[in-house]
Design a binder for these strands. Structure first.
Lengths: 349, 349
DNA sequence: CTGTTAGCGCCTTCAT
DNA sequence: ATGAAGGCGCTAACAG
């Protein structure tokens, strides 16, 4: 029951001054106000100054909806991510936001929580808002999404992967190779019995690719992977901890565990602590993404540094380039790097 | 040089069908299409079905800008945060987004990177986009911001604190009390020589309040706080690690360190590891916010669980309630809770 | 319950 | 370089 705040929906809206008010105060027409705003070069400096003075005096802010309606450009970009609750996507989104803001665009944020049907729905909302471009996470999406985007005809970029078919503009890195590198590292240390902690692979190409990378490394080394030593779950510590407990309870537990991201790896480490399994003496484990969470563990987590921030920045630069008609590479594969720390060592004798 | 993607800015935009097209196909007027969309109850069921069929067939999505221009409601809410790169605000924002999405609103995200002038600037942008309401982080803002909001006359909520003056709607918790609780815990353990790791307090009321909470606890216990044992810096591990190194290099280093958030605490722990200072034997340390980062350390970090997610949800519910004219408490103080773990113990003998 | 009409605020021709 | 006029797509007010 907030007395002064509980009522008054949008109704209290004070009178907002419009271009007409500015025009009157500056003694010009609304057309000149518009020009002063959008093409200052095409206005007499003196007139320009008068208009600007009037704008300041009235606190005039152009009405975006009217502008968008007329010019067919909203100066908004839609970002569609699984969830910014996950630090990774939050960081990428922040980098994207910074680039957009610097160019005068606003970011409309949508989440789909790993539901590709929801992704189509939120995209329709973004279309409704008239966003000028879209940024998505991942390569795999509902065909209806691409149909919608195609219809809408505006730029979009997929991130966190590079489309091998080159069908959709995309910026990211080779997830498979990243997991391969982590796995290969433990193979080289002498491990032969591997486990896998992974995100649910349904509709998640990052997780799929990372799993494939691990399997490829093992296959290449002539090591058979026992699928009974793989566990899939939601990206949180409690789940991964439970998953690791299952692996440790097996008759022949793995001596090396590949995790498709740092969260799973740290959850796994928690389970090891629960059971007195020593890392790296009894078990080696790797993450992917090289987050603070992993790097601050004891021992510190061996991981793969992925271009979390660069992806966001590159995606922003790409859509802006396309919006202004500047040529720009539609496919960008960014580098990653294995970071070896204390969580990996040769297997126990 | 993406051949098919490099050119074509917005120009490729396919013809988007409008209400007129739907009306023609359904054999009704555009007004009925509008009503079918906004007040389905006021349309003959049979007509409604025909309209819906036409909408589906054409893949019609209402033009948000036109709708906003006419109805003065954009169905967008602006969220202005320091940065979603910081996991805390990302999680709150995600919770907010979920609530808004469920009610048909979209979230426009703006960041100001702890620059209150930038905050005014991005708010102007949001005003330009015609957002229906605003959500801010923190209680302290540029007076021009409030002037702007006042002019605009739409609902807004401040978060992560509750305005003691009851001048601005706000939802959060008592930051001072949270820091007080953490400090008090270590006082009770017998500590007398305290250190502080804090965010830069300029324009950051959360950090200010938390620092005051620590000082209040000490003062109440009759313990003098030596300001030379306080360090202020940006919220990242490298900075806090360096800050802690400075504290440890003092002639009489603290035996208990209060950190205004978990990141500082974990950075502090890293410095202790660097120097072989044992936690909690040689030094006790506390965080605030109870993040995974702190909870997974060895030893686990004693912290204060703050309502990170609830703040976002409550903020969303409040602005929506106000937007639809439903009464709603304008001030909400949410609970927090001290979580004692292994990083705190009595001081060394 | 449905159609007609007018106009939201701005940008963009087209004249001048 | 500037002004006058029309209309972007939709919804609100009013008739019928």
């Amino acid at each position: 029951m907030g007395a002064p705040f509980g009522r008054s929906p949008a109704s209290t809206a004070a009178v907002r001054s419009g271009a007409k008010d500015v025009a009157r105060l500056a003694g010009v027409s609304t057309a000149t106000v518009s020009r002063a705003l959008n093409f200052p070069g095409r206005v007499e400096p003196e007139t320009l100054a008068r208009v600007r003075q009037a704008i300041d005096q009235l606190g005039y802010v152009p009405h975006g909806a009217a502008r968008a309606l007329r010019s067919r450009r909203s100066q908004m970009v839609g970002a569609v991510v699984p969830s910014v609750d996950y630090a990774l996507y939050a960081r990428t989104t922040s980098a994207l936001q910074a680039v957009l803001d610097a160019k005068g665009y606003s970011l409309v944020l949508a989440e789909h929580h790993y539901d590709l049907a929801a992704e189509v729905r939120v995209t329709e909302q973004l279309v409704g808002h008239g966003v000028d471009a879209f940024v998505y996470v991942g390569l795999h999406h509902d065909p209806r999404l691409f149909a919608l985007l195609d219809d809408y005809g505006r730029p979009y970029v997929l991130t966190w992967g590079v489309d091998p078919m080159r069908r959709h503009p995309s910026v990211g890195f080779d997830n498979r190779a990243a997991a391969y590198a982590a796995t290969r590292h433990m193979i080289d240390l002498g491990h032969r019995r591997f486990g896998l902690l992974s995100a649910v692979t349904t509709d998640n190409d990052r997780a799929i690719e990372r799993g494939l990378g691990m399997r490829a490394a093992l296959a290449q080394a002539g090591i058979a992977f026992d699928e009974s030593r793989a566990r899939y779950g939601p990206i949180d510590l409690a789940a991964s901890r439970a998953m690791m407990h299952e692996l440790l309870a097996l008759d022949a537990p793995p001596t090396a565990v590949v995790s498709t991201n740092d969260v799973f790896a740290v959850g796994g480490m928690l389970a090891c602590r629960d059971r007195g399994v020593r890392i790296p003496d009894d078990l080696s484990i790797t993450g992917i993404d090289n987050t603070d969470l992993g790097a601050t563990q004891t021992p510190a987590l061996t991981s793969v540094r992925t271009p979390i921030v660069d992806i966001g920045r590159a995606a922003g630069e790409q859509v802006i380039a396309r919006l202004v008609g500047r040529p720009h590479a539609a496919f960008e594969s960014l580098p990653f790097e294995l970071v070896v720390r204390g969580s990996t060592a040769p297997p126990p004798a």
